[in-house]
Design a binder for these strands. Sequence first.
DNA 1: AGCCATACTTACCCAAAGGAGAGTATCGCC
DNA 2: GGCGATACTCTCCTTTGGGTAAGTATGGCT
Lengths: 146, 146
Amino acid sequence: MTPSLTRKQLAQAKEYCAGDCYDIEVDPRVEALVTELLGRVADKWTMLVIEALATGGEMRFSRIAEAVAGISQKMLTQTLRQMERDGLVVRTVHPVIPPHVDYRLTEMGRGLGEAFCGVWVWAGEHLAQIEKARREFDARNRKPAG
Amino acid sequence: MTPSLTRKQLAQAKEYCAGDCYDIEVDPRVEALVTELLGRVADKWTMLVIEALATGGEMRFSRIAEAVAGISQKMLTQTLRQMERDGLVVRTVHPVIPPHVDYRLTEMGRGLGEAFCGVWVWAGEHLAQIEKARREFDARNRKPAG
DNA sequence: AGCCATACTTACCCAAAGGAGAGTATCGCC
DNA sequence: GGCGATACTCTCCTTTGGGTAAGTATGGCT
């Protein structure tokens, strides 16, 4: 998940759907569903949990909480439930005392991580450019009072 | 942007960073920045505006508003400003009365759309599977009171 | 008997997101 | 002279997101 593949991989990413993506008629119902899905899928915690699980393999609740750094118990529970419902993770409860619960990515969860990887790569590649654009924009728009 | 490429393209998407993404050590500062960026960049409206502009080329405010369907004036203005600041779109004001403003994607904006295309494809491919997973989850969890 | 660990669940609360709708500036047109 | 068109901009208000913290269940350890 972490973006270090840089140029070669990015080139492939660009190639893989450049152009083609933009001019295909598609069932509007599918698009609506995809849009709805995007809202859910493109959320911060889900992607970070996927990253944690992709890196660490099967993990228990408290390990994920440590790995994701900054997430609250509530949000982690909530995110994991959602992901389980969507079939992105499998939740395994070991009925021991104290409780022990493991989570692991499904094939689909892994696939989502991989699909999203393109965005990670892009973000990594364009960080500097975006920060430059922001500085320039701010400079341009700080002084129009003059 | 719209996801109809299905299997062939998806195969490429999977191929393009499968495995490699998951086991590379990366500067945690970079990762933090990417994470921050993702939250900003991968938001629902931004992606939909990119899709509109990628499909329709240069468009004016009210055309985009029509294309994105559901967005409020406020959110569209806000999203476009953000995107302009990040260097994803170029805003061209024609100083006529009534005002006329055009927006078009930059190279970077187009690149982001392409990077995100993998997620669209994935979402399109897995919609049915996710809905099935949800139904099964809901069935499993509706009755544990029995 | 009481405490600890684990993985939640629930209640409360604040801040931010975001929708609705009205206001604004300007000119040409009727 | 008032209206309409365009692209905002501002205010008000509701909804949602998300943090904190306390509660829960259970058996082993002390």
